[in-house]
Amino acid sequence: MTHARSKTVPLNGSPDETESAFYEALRHGDIEELMACWSDDDDIAYVRPSGSRLLGAGAIRDEFTAVFAKGPVVLRRMQVNRVLTLSSAVYSVVEQLRLTQPTPRLAVLLVTTVYHKTPQGWRMVVRHSSPGRLPAAHVIDTPRPALLH
């Protein structure tokens, strides 16, 4: 499978540029740009926050198409940690999402993304998302409890 030439994922860019392009695609609901961030390898994998694993570009495309059908993805990246080598990069990120369905609320995901340097540039090969939580001091829009004293 080959992707059309991406507008935002550079051919000879850095893993940071691919990571940024992925989050821009999420924000704009652009499935073509999002898929351009992934490797063409048949063995790419996405582990959903529910714990189920999707293998291959077709399954990943279907998943994110369904996500985009629910409306914009509003999130804030926090606590980004990177491990880089010459041919791979691993990003560990805390994402805070603003959900609107079934009721408005905030959710936290702990995300690990693996990038490989390919002939097309740095591309995602694995993304693993798990539910998480932050200490109250890091959560936005959370009312503080009243003092009892």
Rank of each mutant, 00 (worst) to 15 (best):
V111W: 07
V73T: 13
A59G: 00
D41Q: 13
L54D: 02
F22E: 09
V114P: 04
C37T: 12
T100D: 10
T113V: 09
D42E: 14
I31V: 15
R77C: 07
L147K: 15
L75P: 00
S88E: 06
T142S: 15
A25D: 08
M1H: 12
L75H: 06
R5G: 02
K7W: 01
R27V: 00
L109Y: 14
V125H: 09
T100Q: 10
R27D: 09
L54I: 06
S87V: 02
H128R: 08
A107I: 01
E95M: 02
V108E: 11
W38D: 03
Y91V: 01
L11S: 11
P143H: 11
E24T: 05
R82E: 11
A146S: 12
R98G: 04
M124R: 02
S87H: 05
L99C: 05
P102K: 01
R98D: 12
P10W: 02
T2S: 15
S20R: 15
S87T: 12
D41E: 13
L84W: 01
G71K: 11
V93M: 06
Y115Q: 01
V94Q: 10
N81R: 15
E95I: 02
V125F: 03
A146V: 07
M1W: 08
T2Y: 14
S92C: 04
R77M: 10
S130K: 03
R5Q: 08
V126C: 10
R27S: 13
E33P: 04
H149N: 13
G29A: 11
A66Y: 00
T2N: 15
R61L: 02
T85D: 13
T118Y: 09
F64I: 00
M124P: 03
I44L: 07
L34D: 10
Q79H: 05
L97R: 10
G13P: 02
L26C: 10
V73K: 05
A4T: 05
R144C: 04
E63H: 14
R61Q: 08
A146L: 10
L86R: 13
V139H: 05
L34W: 07
L26D: 02
L34P: 07
A36I: 08
P143N: 14
L54N: 05
A25L: 07
A21C: 11
V80I: 13
L54H: 02
Y91W: 08
A137R: 13
V93A: 08
T18H: 09
A137H: 08
A89W: 01
P10Q: 05
D141V: 04
S87N: 12
Q79C: 00
P10G: 05
G58H: 06
H3D: 09
S92G: 06
D62L: 06
Y23S: 09
P49A: 03
E24L: 07
